[in-house]
């Protein structure tokens, strides 16, 4: 069987298309590359969904935490504290068993027990909390002069926020936010190891890598393949976020813009 056949059979296996049975013996390199790559689709799905939806909630949380009214501040502070102060692994487990117990009682929540929705919800809340804290820090460092300038132009409320505060906040937060995005994609590998079942063996990249490692009892092939895929993914994220960052900073002189480029070793841990 040529490698093209393998790719046709297993390229979309993680989504349920193609060959039904996973390879069981005589594993080829091509099979490992194809299946692990196919699983990577789930990592990208979880990462993109959580990042896009989390961005909106993160902005709200940052504004809430900076708000003077305790009605907004307290809920935002508690959300950030709960999701940043506990391990994502435990959050997954807790959420899965919570959804499982809701399943019988409330109609319409059945889908939450499957990974595609349930895990995405947890990742959404988790990344919103982490990015919310980043945005909150950036919000506090928005230069006073810019806000005063907006006041002088007669801007207030929503206009001032959308045109002055929000863009500057994003600009300041962007390097740290890039890190958060990278670690979010890494965190998506936890999904199928934490309660959420992989139905019909449709799992993510790490799920297939550990499948091969278990079957061949040789970790030296599948895990480096997985590592290679993730390094590529990380580079793509850095490039995409860099593009957005450059657009955010496009009005600045070149020297200042490069100074705000994400530092390669600036870290934010999950």
């Amino acid at each position: 069987m040529s490698c093209w056949d393998t790719i046709a059979d297993y390229g979309l296996r993680s989504l349920g298309y193609g060959e039904r049975l996973l390879p069981r013996s005589d594993f080829t390199l091509c099979q490992q590359f194809t299946l692990i790559g196919s699983g990577l689709l789930w990592n990208i799905y979880f990462g993109v969904v959580a990042l896009l939806s989390g961005f909106v909630l993160a902005t709200a949380l940052a504004l809430g935490k900076a708000s003077a009214s305790p009605w907004f501040r307290k809920p935002a502070e508690w959300t950030i504290f709960v999701f940043r102060g506990s391990p994502l692994f435990i959050q997954f487990f807790f959420a899965y068993f919570l959804f499982l117990s809701l399943k019988g009682q409330v109609d319409g929540l059945d889908a939450l027990t499957s990974a595609w929705l349930g895990a995405a919800v947890v990742l959404f809340l988790n990344t919103a909390a982490y990015s919310g804290e980043i945005f909150y820090g950036a919000l506090l460092s928005v230069p006073k002069g810019e806000v005063e300038a907006a006041d002088a132009y007669g801007m207030a409320g929503w206009t001032r926020f959308r045109r002055v505060i929000w863009p500057t906040m994003l600009r300041l937060a962007w390097p740290a936010y890039t890190n958060e995005a990278i670690f979010l994609f890494h965190a998506t590998t936890l999904v199928f190891f934490s309660g959420f079942p992989a139905s019909r063996q449709q799992g993510d990249a790490l799920y297939y890598a550990s499948y091969f490692a278990d079957k061949t009892f040789n970790p030296f092939v599948p895990y480096p393949i997985l590592a290679g895929y993730f390094i590529l993914l990380t580079l793509v994220i850095i490039a995409l976020m860099g593009l957005i960052g450059r657009r955010l900073n496009r009005h600045l002189p070149a020297a200042q813009a490069t100074a705000r480029r994400p530092r390669r070793f600036a870290l934010l841990f999950r």
Binding site: F193, P219, L226, F230, I231
Partner: peptide, 22 residues
């Protein structure tokens, strides 16, 4: 330093446990 940043830590955990043992 760079490798651990590029690859999910859980992959390292699963890898090293077997690799070290072997």
């Amino acid at each position: 330093i760079a490798l651990v940043r590029g690859v999910p830590d859980i992959a390292f955990f699963l890898f090293f446990v077997i690799a070290l043992d072997q």
